[in-house]
């Protein structure tokens, strides 16, 4: 159920993001979700792609610092309070969230959220138990 996320170190200078997307495009890698954490001097680009291994290798070959992290992806109903139910479960279980980002699925009635949590395996367990839809990695890569 764990999804592989690719993180890329980027200096805050123009053209760096374009360079990453160009490399991915040339390698026929499709991006399903992304987020950027930025500070004054640098940013961390986090990507969910259809082929994480290939993406990691392609970016490393082009001199980027890349790391691969396990995250989880959940589906929540795209309506007020949808996300709150899931986060409440994690909170009650004292599972900390390092960061998260959301994106909307294709049919439009479901929103997907990528969560980077302290204990991903236990998070999956408690969420599944409470009927929160946790997406399989293959499902996520195909989005």
């Amino acid at each position: 159920m764990l999804v592989k996320q690719i993180s890329v170190f980027l200096e805050n200078k123009s053209g760096r993001l374009a360079e990453v997307t160009k490399i991915l495009g040339e390698n026929e890698i499709n991006i399903s979700a992304l987020s950027i954490a930025d500070t004054t001097d640098f940013g961390i680009l986090r990507l969910i792609v259809n082929n994480p291994e290939k993406a990691e290798a392609a970016l490393k070959d082009n001199g980027f610092t890349v790391s691969c992290t396990s995250v989880i992806a959940i589906g929540v109903s795209d309506q007020p309070g949808g996300l709150s139910v899931a986060l409440d479960i994690l909170d009650k279980e004292s599972i900390g969230i390092e960061y998260m980002y959301a994106f909307v699925g294709r049919p439009g009635d479901e929103a997907y959220v990528i969560l980077r949590v302290e204990e991903p395996d236990r998070a999956i367990e408690v969420l599944t138990k409470k009927d929160i839809k946790v997406l399989s990695s293959s499902a996520v890569y195909e989005l």
């Binding site: 170190f9 610092t65 790391s67 390092e98």
Partner: peptide, 12 residues
């Protein structure tokens, strides 16, 4: 370097 890098801002 890969040794120093992390996906979390606070670590960096």
């Amino acid at each position: 370097t890969p040794n120093l890098f992390s996906d979390e801002v606070k670590r960096i």
